[in-house]
């Protein structure tokens, strides 16, 4: 296993906190940068993310050129709040309306490519409680300063919020450690150097994102890494330590579903790449059990496993971006 990557391509956010330099270099390279926040019922955290990013990376340091929220049909006030604080807000279904609509984070990220204008797109989850502008500028740093880097992924120590007002100092990343890392170790040991492959914060050049497919659900992060690795190799990828990220804790059942989708994406990718030979199709149902009145009842979660093709293959996109 080539392990020099970890040393060479791993950074700390503090290496990029000279924002004047980043802005200068961005302008010299004539780059446009878009920030995209995919949302579904994030009324508690969305305003904070927009405010901090606008203040620090648009008003004070013109690093971002636009801030876009792509919403999956929130039933709370996510969209109203985001609009009130000046983000460009879209419902995912409004973008490329002629295509069959799907619902999921991957769908939002993929459609963001159509509505944003940036040469670089930064994706941040919208549920970060301790949001800080380093979450964006640190991901942008390697992309702006190093010509060989095309895609940057975040990693952190991940404390999780437990109970009403208490914080547990460490934890989180269970799906990474129990599912993704063992799989990477078995099949792509080089990729184990990516410390948090499931982190929801990453940035990259449009030319990368537009050329890879996007699963519509949880599998998007895993497939993105596999596809970029497969097409361009590990050296175009970098990772940045963003210190701490505090997010909502998810229960084991929810993580089970997440793990199911990730496994499905992973196995399908390997199959597609010819690395394994599946004798029959995978089942698409995750079955969990509930004890109801002394009786075990199945709780079935069905995954369609839809995937968007590389957006460069969509005529409307090619037309809009003259590609």
């Amino acid at each position: 296993m080539k392990s020099t990557w970890l040393e060479k391509n791993t950074f700390h956010y503090s290496e990029f906190n000279d924002l004047d330099r980043l802005v200068e270099e961005k302008q010299r390279k004539n780059l446009k940068i878009s920030l995209c926040l995919p949302t579904l019922n994030e009324e508690k955290t969305i305003a904070k993310e927009i405010l901090i990013m606008k203040s620090e990376l648009m008003t004070r340091y013109p690093l971002l050129d636009e801030l876009v929220v792509i919403d999956s049909g929130s039933t709370d006030k996510t969209r109203e709040i985001a609009r009130a604080y000046g983000a460009d807000v879209y419902e995912a279904t409004e973008i490329l309306p002629d295509l069959e609509p799907f619902k999921g984070k991957g769908e939002n990220l993929w459609k963001a490519l159509y509505v944003t204008k940036g040469d670089i797109i930064v994706y941040l989850d919208a549920d970060i409680k301790n949001i800080h502008h380093r979450f964006a500028y640190a991901l942008l740093g390697p992309l702006i300063l190093f010509d060989n880097i095309k895609y940057v992924k975040a990693f952190y120590d991940r404390p999780i919020a437990i109970g009403k007002s208490k914080i547990r100092p460490t934890g989180g990343g269970r799906v990474t450690e129990l599912v993704v890392r063992p799989m990477f170790s078995l099949f792509f040991p080089e990729l184990t150097q990516i410390l948090q492959p499931l982190s929801g914060e990453y940035a990259g050049f449009r030319e990368i994102f537009e050329a890879i497919p996007f699963p519509i659900g949880y599998g998007v992060e895993t497939s993105m890494i596999l596809d970029i690795y497969e097409k361009w190799g590990l050296d175009v990828i970098a990772q940045v330590d963003l210190d701490r990220r505090i997010h909502r804790n998810q229960d084991t059942r929810a993580l089970g579903k997440m793990a199911f989708v990730i496994l499905m994406t992973f196995i399908n990718r390997k199959n597609k790449l010819g690395l394994i030979d599946l004798k029959e199709d995978l089942f698409n149902e995750m079955i969990q059990y509930n004890l109801v009145k002394n009786e075990y009842k199945p709780d079935i979660f069905q995954i369609e496993g839809h995937e968007r093709p590389p957006i460069i293959e969509i005529p409307a996109y090619r037309e809009k971006f003259k590609k």
Partner: peptide, 16 residues
Amino acid sequence: DIDHYYTIKENSITGA
């Protein structure tokens, strides 16, 4: 040990 993370709405900020 208290959660100090704030929630911002259209016209309010909430938190310890």
